[in-house]
């Protein structure tokens, strides 16, 4: 469902993403980790078609994001780390706007909107202007809007920031349910406990290069690290002597 082929992305003289190769299957919950400035957000923007690769190809649902972006975008939903809402719309009006944008028929839209309002417990504030929402309320509303059209691919950047424990629990359940139902979830997060609990596979990126990709057990074995995902992450991303770990385009070479 998601395919990145030898993707490079350059900002001026700085290479933000270098020879990135990923293939993510339908229904997979894929976590994308990396330290600050590693290239996660750039990769996410490449997946959404906001940026184009300097070299290589990004495919969503078999469509090339550069040349067939208009066909690929209806398949995906993107929840950024800083959610955007129109301040002078109510939450319900915003959901309605999104439903119309995806061409959902009226009756279905009403039904779907009611469902997502219930799923993300928006009832108490959904008819208020979004300018009055707290960060958590905004985040939940944007999540709800991302799911209104049943996307084939869901890309989420730092989804748990600003959410209370109850909302985090509901969000995790929802992400798992979506993946089980066939939606490909691409999750970028610094909350390693969430990733450890949810992810089918994990990729770790550092300095623009993929330094590991696989299930958490596979990564542990390759890096010869026992312990939590946090230990594994720190081992892989802390500066290492060159002879211990050599990143390749396929993943980690122990």
């Amino acid at each position: 469902m998601i395919q990145l082929e030898h993707v490079h992305k350059r900002y001026g003289t700085k290479l933000a993403v270098e020879d990135l190769n990923l293939t993510i299957a339908p229904g997979e919950l894929f976590a994308f980790l990396g330290p600050n400035g590693a290239g996660k957000t750039t990769t996410i923007k490449l997946l959404c078609g906001l940026l184009f690769p300097t070299a290589g190809r990004v495919m969503i649902g078999g469509y090339d994001m550069r040349t067939q972006g208009d066909l690929a975008r209806p398949l995906l939903s993107y929840v950024p780390d800083l959610p955007y809402l129109y301040e002078k719309l109510t939450g319900r009006e915003f959901l309605r706007f999104i439903a119309e944008m995806y061409g959902i028929p009226d009756a279905t839209a009403r039904e779907r909107i009611s469902q997502v309002i219930e799923s993300f417990s928006l009832e108490a504030f959904v008819d208020d202007l979004t300018e009055r929402y707290s960060h958590g309320m905004r985040q939940r509303t944007v999540f709800a809007s991302a799911l209104v059209h049943n996307p084939k691919v869901l890309i989420v950047d730092e989804p748990t920031v600003g959410l209370d424990p109850y909302s985090v629990r509901k969000l995790k359940d929802e992400l798992r349910r979506l993946a089980n139902a066939g939606t490909t979830v691409f999750l970028s997060s610094h909350s390693l406990d969430v990733v450890e609990e949810l992810a089918d596979r994990v990729a770790i990126i550092n300095h623009g290069k993929l330094i590991g990709c696989g299930t958490i057990d596979e990564l542990r074995n390759k890096a010869r690290v026992d312990g939590s995902l946090e230990d594994l992450f720190l081992t892989l991303t802390l500066p290492q002597p060159e002879d211990q770990l050599a990143p390749t385009s396929e993943g980690l070479r122990p």
Binding site: G12, A16, G37
Partner: peptide
Amino acid sequence: YRRGYNRCATGGDLR
């Protein structure tokens, strides 16, 4: 437009 957005966002150095 999309090309320009991409060029504008990534035309200069990150830092």
